[in-house]
Design a protein around this nucleic acid. Structure first.
Length: 503
RNA sequence: GGUCCGGUGGCCGAGUGGUCAGGCACAGGUCUGCAAAACCUGCUACGGCGGUUCAAUUCCGCCCCGGACCUCCA
């Protein structure tokens, strides 16, 4: 395994990744504010940084991946006022929905998933440090960060405080010393959640939670901080200001990574625009569309904008169908040797700032290699790209495929279950946490459909067709095939007999 | 208005100063009772105008178009 390079938003260039401690890589990614179902755009950073976490774990002996849950926020308060549902119920339910949806996208849980409400003490401690260091002040029940006190403010997002003010879209609160100052702590009235603090009963501002939680779980300084591109300003800019000023001499995050926005009809999908589609909407099309959506996300480089279309989702689903068909055909083969060499070749593009589209192209070459040696055909073109001089033995390319696909987190299901559209039963490679979350959500669908009886009917129809074919009664054989096709069952005649799959 | 990112073949989408991306769709072929699957072949593009260079899709400048951010946002 060679070196990893990642694009650092702060440096605005791609840098070789050099961990603070090669024996323990630490990463923080901004998680959801839990007041509503996750939309498609929310899923992008989850999937992107899931791939990064998998890659880091392949390279380094220990990785701590922290992704927070923001369960105190004025949007949550507003939702509660509108619906009458208690705040605790909203956040608990939405957190559970989020876990379920992300699991259905094949995202492994982070190592630590801190809740903002459980880190109020750390936030208060940070704010006290900032006041003591002369970077924050209390005013009118609020505590504000003093932007002019931090010379590097604006460095991350690449703007000067003057520019920021020129385009500011909000009125400046009277208690601010400087128009750019932002809230660390604000007072709560009796109807709003609040915690006792040196400045009275109140609640945290938006940015302080991430500074507090990354500090608590990763320390004053850590390797990678990730999130959506739209968080660079003000969220991440303010995080830097808070953390660096609270802990002078520490660099906070060494690398900043930001994923591009997911668009729909050419515009950013966002809750404020109301043009969003939820992950749940995708899953309602069938459990296989969870992984199809994950593949769709990875087919575009993470820093590019991605325009979501249903046609793209269907294409991703079809690609997975072909992958699983290959996997179900391939014989078992030992790992190591050529298999690991091919897996490394397929994964290698990820080392270049997570070039998932190229890695996926190599996965397709592994599929072609396997198909050529197990089904028949020429593996020459794929061999050339994979720099092979001899065709791999049957099963070897599939073995490599499984290993490389595991880093991308795709093609993780049992191949036969996928093809036959059965209740998902993940392969052993899929960790239990993911399995249980997916099965609990999805198992009901298949069981309710009376799947076992249906499969018996399909097998009977295939047997009847076989008899017709033996009698050279082609009309009857084709009639049976067409009848099954109308039910979404596709038959394939091969040398080893007839197989079927669900379209 | 300010800052930044992008415009690649019918569609999606990597990448590169000179030699292959890849996928989908489409067309043809091998195989097959037919079909499907699989494999093979074809389809050869880099928004516009200048500049640098022996050579630019790739570097620079300008223009056009799209998008993001400018204290709700993944």
């Amino acid at each position: 395994m060679t070196d990893l390079f990642i694009h650092d938003s702060a440096a605005r260039t791609t840098r070789r990744f050099e961990p603070i401690d090669p024996n323990h890589v630490r990463m923080y990614v901004c998680g959801p504010t839990v007041y509503d179902l996750a939309h498609l755009g929310n899923a992008r950073p989850v999937v992107v940084f899931d791939v990064l976490a998998r890659l880091l774990r392949r390279i380094y002996p220990r990785v701590t991946y922290v992704r927070n849950i923001t369960d105190v926020d004025d949007k949550i308060n507003a939702r509660s006022r509108e619906s009458g549902e208690p705040i605790g119920a909203i956040t608990a339910r939405t957190t559970e929905d989020f876990h379920r949806d992300m699991a259905a996208l094949g995202a492994l849980p982070p190592d630590v998933e801190p809740r903002a409400t459980q880190h109020i003490a750390e936030m208060i401690a940070l704010i006290e440090r900032l006041i003591a260091n002369g970077h924050a002040y209390a005013a009118d029940g609020h505590v504000l960060f003093s932007v002019p006190s931090f010379a590097d403010y604006g460095k991350l997002s690449g703007r000067s405080p003057d520019e920021l003010l020129a385009g500011a879209r909000v009125d400046v609160a009277p208690y601010k010393r400087d128009a750019g100052d932002f809230v660390l702590w604000k007072p709560s009235d009796d109807a709003t959640p609040g915690w006792d603090s040196p400045w009275g009963r109140g609640r945290p501002g938006w940015h302080i939670e991430c500074s507090a939680m990354s500090w608590k779980h990763l320390g004053e300084e850590f390797d990678i901080h990730g999130g959506g591109h739209d968080l660079i300003f003000p969220h991440h800019e303010n995080e830097v200001a808070q953390s660096v000023c609270a802990f002078p001499g520490h660099g906070f995050a060494h690398y900043w990574m930001h994923n591009g926005m997911l668009l729909v009809d050419g515009e950013k999908m966002s809750k404020s625009l109301g043009n969003f589609m939820t992950v749940r909407d995708i899953l309602d099309k069938g459990w296989r569309f969870g992984e199809a959506f994950r593949l769709l996300l990875l087919r575009t480089h993470y820093r590019q904008a991605l325009d979501f279309t249903m046609a793209g989702l269907e294409e991703a689903k079809a690609e997975l169908d072909d992958h699983y068909a290959m996997l179900s055909r391939a014989p078992a083969a030992p790992g190591g040797g050529i298999a690991s060499q091919l897996a490394d070749w397929a994964v290698a593009p990820l080392l270049d700032d997570l070039n998932t589209p190229l890695a996926l192209a190599r996965l397709r070459d592994l599929r072609t290699l396997e198909n050529a040696v197990t089904v028949g055909g020429s593996p020459a073109v794929a061999m050339e790209r994979a720099r092979l001089t001899v065709p791999p033995a049957p099963g070897v390319a599939a073995k490599a495929f499984r290993e490389a696909a595991g880093v991308l987190g795709v093609a993780a299901w049992n191949a036969d279950d996928w093809l036959k559209g059965r209740a998902p039963r993940a392969d052993a490679a899929v960790p239990g946490a993911m399995l249980s979350a997916q099965v609990s959500h999805l198992q009901g669908q298949a069981v309710a459909s009376g799947q076992h009886d249906e499969e018996a009917d399909i097998d009977a129809a295939i047997a009847a067709r076989l008899a017709a074919r033996k009698a050279k009664n082609w009309a009857e054989a084709d009639r049976i095939r067409d009848e099954l096709k109308a039910q979404g069952i596709v038959l394939e005649d091969g040398p080893a007999g007839t197989t079927w799959r669900r379209a």
